[in-house]
Design a protein around this nucleic acid. Structure first.
Lengths: 342, 342
DNA sequence: TCTAATCATGTCAGCGCTGACAATGAGAAA
DNA sequence: TTTCTCATTGTCAGCGCTGACATGATTAGA
């Protein structure tokens, strides 16, 4: 008995299509690449031949000839899987749309340096451009290597060297402003912030925006409780510990807690509950990111939505649009999502 | 004022290296590809030249000449971002190790068919092999297209056509067995299962294993409460609703709930608490996956760890090892992780 | 000593495509 | 009619690398 259908079909080439359509390979190439200046009749004949042969462009050959790879590299550390997956989703969608492929390089802290990983991975793949997320986008040596190679890149939420490259950021301050107003409007007056490390650019922006907005509203900036956590193994556990510590230390207790991200907020909720406080009755809690754990929490977490996938989508758009994009600076809005905890 | 150092360095080629080392390009190629039969002296000379020029192989040229792309495609739907990120992590690590690159194709239900996505994406990238996750790995038409093209693939946790291709699975039954024994040993006797859809292969295996183990322990299979949920928008919300419904309907209440995955378990915890039950005091709750939300929950969720990243890592290993792998069948263990809810 | 086997290295075509440029032909302008 | 323009199509080299094969040098075996 023979195997069912092992007739392995060898991929068709431009020449195969050209022979069928009775034109030169170059003209088929023009059709495939959507060039102008091909007559409608020829185009149709070629398109039929393409369908008949099941032709698909050979990227390797195309890359070699055109000296572009149609590959966009995303260079990112293993952040939370949510952030990672969202970046991927946005970037992949855009790549599909613009005819690129996405190669993701994950940077594993401590294994080797970012420059090494870039050289071994993304550079030898000859990516046409790179998308950089924090904290990769803030590594001076990497940026220098990129510039040296003439490798174009766009940064997402960069913390350093503002303006020197294309960059996309979320307007964190604006969403936090909305949150602060919302809390104030619902009568909360005693605030606490579970803040991030001082070198975490975005966390600082969120913190400052919160304090300033409250001050503008008539609150007392000095009265806002603040505790700063380090980013350890389990972020939510750090958040829980910090909140527990804070709540045990102070009197009167805060009636609103702003955590600089959702995981910390989840930890803060656990801490509040452990001390017998109800959320949002005794204390309102809010996070930042609108990651999917925000909806998983109970009650679902009030948080600030950040358009991570959009950021990545537009980042790819910037590099794919082709023009010089050295100076593109894009700021995307964030927005308060009121759920059950504030 | 001139730009700092825009001296864009054009990538070195094999010929450049060869000229410096005073050998032919082919010999350099041998060194780069770790071929045997190059004398130690020559090898050293060439390696020095490679360092000097900063040479890195041009994948496009290599692919074209060798008619292999050194690309492995991962074809998966947008599952939970946790599952997705883990698969990615494992596969990327293995690719790095074996000198491949990873191209991830995300299948978006409803946009087009899997076969289309394969043909437009992964096939035109000329991947050397594909890694398929559920439910992509169970699409008859896709598998047929793959066989027709002679595209090698390995499936992770396949539900259909067992044994016809290389496949890696987690031993779900085993971990569930551990859980059932653990619950029984801690005195639980009234069980409920929040089960998945009947067409979700893994969910059914988990369900059956739970029932059978309990029966073997002396439990009454008929007495086990079972409710089956559909996989909607928010899985945890489905879990919450189903649990709420179940708990309101039955008397006496179960003292242990097994949810077929972690998100459902989180939903079940919310439901139990809403009805004033303590976890794990009144009712033990356990999930499956050991996803990162399990640690985020409070109390942290008792669950069954599934080696998702390992599965992907070994999947790449199978295809990268090169030999014929048509029949490789690998089963990886799962294990109970006792945390705070059972 | 001579032959065969083995190792180290080189030569060269060609993978499939595109950029640069050339050629062709049809209509417009002179 | 002649010249020019320009839309359409073709020719061809070569991108950087590797497989197949050839070559020369060395070593082992008889």
């Amino acid at each position: 008995m023979k195997p069912i259908d092992t007739a392995v079909r060898k991929p068709a080439t431009l020449d195969d299509v050209a022979a069928i359509a009775g034109v030169s390979a170059k003209t088929v190439s023009r059709v495939v690449n959507r060039n102008a200046n091909v007559s409608a009749a020829t185009r149709e004949r070629i398109e039929a031949a393409i369908r008949e042969t099941g032709y698909h462009v050979n990227q390797a050959a195309r890359s070699l000839a055109a000296s572009r790879s149609f590959l966009i590299g995303a260079f990112m550390p293993h952040l939370s899987s949510f952030y990672f997956a969202e970046i991927f989703r946005g970037a992949a969608k855009a790549c599909r749309q613009y005819g690129y492929h996405l190669v993701v390089e994950e940077f594993d802290h401590g294994v080797d340096t970012m420059v090494d990983r870039y050289e071994q991975g993304l550079r030898s793949a000859r990516c046409d451009a790179l998308i950089l997320t924090p904290p990769v986008c803030d590594d001076e040596r990497l940026l220098a290597a990129l510039d040296r190679d003439g490798m174009p890149y766009v940064r997402i939420a960069p913390g350093i060297r503002p303006g020197v490259s294309a960059a996309l950021s979320a307007d964190d301050a604006q969403g936090v402003q909305q949150l602060a107003r919302h809390l104030w409007a619902s009568g909360r007056r005693r605030f606490a912030i579970i803040a991030g490390p001082a070198d975490h650019a975005a966390a600082m922006i969120r913190e400052n925006s919160f304090v300033e907005t409250l001050a503008g509203l008539g609150g007392d900036p000095e009265g806002i409780l603040l505790t700063r956590i380090e980013l350890h193994e389990s972020i939510s556990e750090s958040g829980r510990a910090a909140t527990l510590d804070l709540l045990r230390r102070v009197d009167p207790l805060p009636d609103a807690i702003f955590a600089f991200n959702d995981e910390v907020a989840i930890g803060a909720m656990a801490a509040a509950r452990e001390l017998g406080l109800t959320v949002p009755g005794d204390v309102a809690i809010a996070g930042f990111d609108d990651s999917y754990i925000a909806q998983l929490a109970w009650p679902p977490l009030t948080t600030i939505h950040q358009p991570i996938a959009d950021l990545a989508f537009q980042a790819v758009g910037v590099v794919a649009s082709g023009e010089s994009f050295a100076a593109s600076q894009i700021l995307l809005p964030t927005s308060l999502v009121v759920r059950g905890t504030a």
